[in-house]
Simulated assay, not measured.
Amino acid sequence: MDNREANERILAAAEKLYYRKGFAAVGMDELRTAADVSLRRLYGLYPSKTDIVTAVLARKHTEWEHGLTQAVAAAGNDVRERLLTVYGYLEDWFCSDGFRGCAFINAFGELGGTNPAIAQIIREHKAAFQSYMNGLVADIGGSELLAAQLSILAEGAQTTAAISADPRVATQARAAAEVLIGAALAR
């Protein structure tokens, strides 16, 4: 097994374990076993747990951005529908097997207070989402305030869906978004 294959095994196992059990609960030995790599190779590729968490969050960020932009692009040219597609994307995610909330929110809850580097990565991810929403809202002629409100709806939906195990939260958030958009554009 080369380092590229070992790296993929480690990151895939870490992502699965962290999402299912939590970032703090998974030790390096459990990760080594799940990835089926030696402890020496694990530490050779990732000298610290922070390094692995950072790599997992980078993968999740790329996955999130790719999935969201693909869904929005598939919505066609109607700028309002493209914006509302964000909530459809959330609903699809909430309905997926094993949905346990946003990995970034989970990581922040577990590690954000004790690991400033991880907290910064999470803040950057959330800022990137806000920036994306700013662009979608600007396309319909809305303000940054509207974009912030719609982002809060999306973020709140992620947390509520994880706690309630109810994917309908995304539909409720979309309905609230439609009201906010309508009110903002009527002014």
Results as ranks from 00 to 15, higher is better:
Val86Ile: 13
Ala175Gln: 08
Ile118Tyr: 05
Ala184Phe: 08
Ile163Ser: 11
Ala127Met: 05
His125Asn: 08
Ala170Thr: 03
Ala176Met: 15
Leu180Lys: 11
Phe104Ala: 06
Thr114Met: 12
Gly76Leu: 00
Ile105Arg: 09
Ala165Val: 06
Ile181Arg: 03
Val56Asp: 00
Gln130Pro: 00
Ala74Lys: 14
Ala103Asp: 07
Pro47Glu: 14
Gln158His: 12
Ile122Ser: 06
Asp78Thr: 09
Asp139Ser: 15
Ala175Pro: 05
His66Phe: 15
Val169Asn: 05
Ile105Ser: 11
Ala119Phe: 05
Ala165Gln: 15
Asp97Phe: 05
Glu178His: 01
Leu90Ile: 04
Ala119Val: 10
Leu136Ile: 09
Gly182Phe: 03
Pro116Trp: 10
Ala177Glu: 00
Leu90Asp: 08
Glu155Trp: 08
Gln149Val: 01
Ser48Asn: 09
Asn134Thr: 09
Pro167Asp: 13
Phe104Asn: 08
Phe129Pro: 01
Thr171Ile: 04
Ala157Gly: 11
Thr85Trp: 01
Gly141Asp: 00
Ser143Arg: 14
Tyr43Pro: 01
Trp93Tyr: 02
Asp166Trp: 02
Ala74Trp: 10
Arg59Ala: 01
Thr85Met: 12
Ala161Lys: 03
Ala157Trp: 07
Ser96Val: 02
Gln149Phe: 02
Gly141Asn: 00
Met133Arg: 11
Ala177Thr: 05
Thr114Leu: 13
Thr62Tyr: 09
Gly101Val: 07
Gly67Phe: 07
Pro116Leu: 13
Asp92Phe: 02
Thr159Lys: 14
Gln172Lys: 09
Met133Asn: 06
Ser143Pro: 14
Thr85Gln: 03
Lys49Phe: 10
Thr114Phe: 08
Gly112Pro: 00
Ala176His: 13
Ala165Phe: 09
Ala75Leu: 02
Ile118Glu: 04
Ile140Glu: 01
Ala157Pro: 05
Ala176Asn: 12
Ala162Met: 11
Leu180Thr: 08
Ile163Asp: 07
Gly98Glu: 08
Pro47Ser: 14
Tyr89Glu: 01
Gly141Lys: 06
Gln172Ala: 11
Val137Met: 10
Gly141Thr: 00
Ser164Phe: 07
Val86Gly: 08
Cys102Ile: 10
Trp64Tyr: 15
Leu150Tyr: 12
Ile152Leu: 14
Glu124Val: 13
Ala119Met: 13
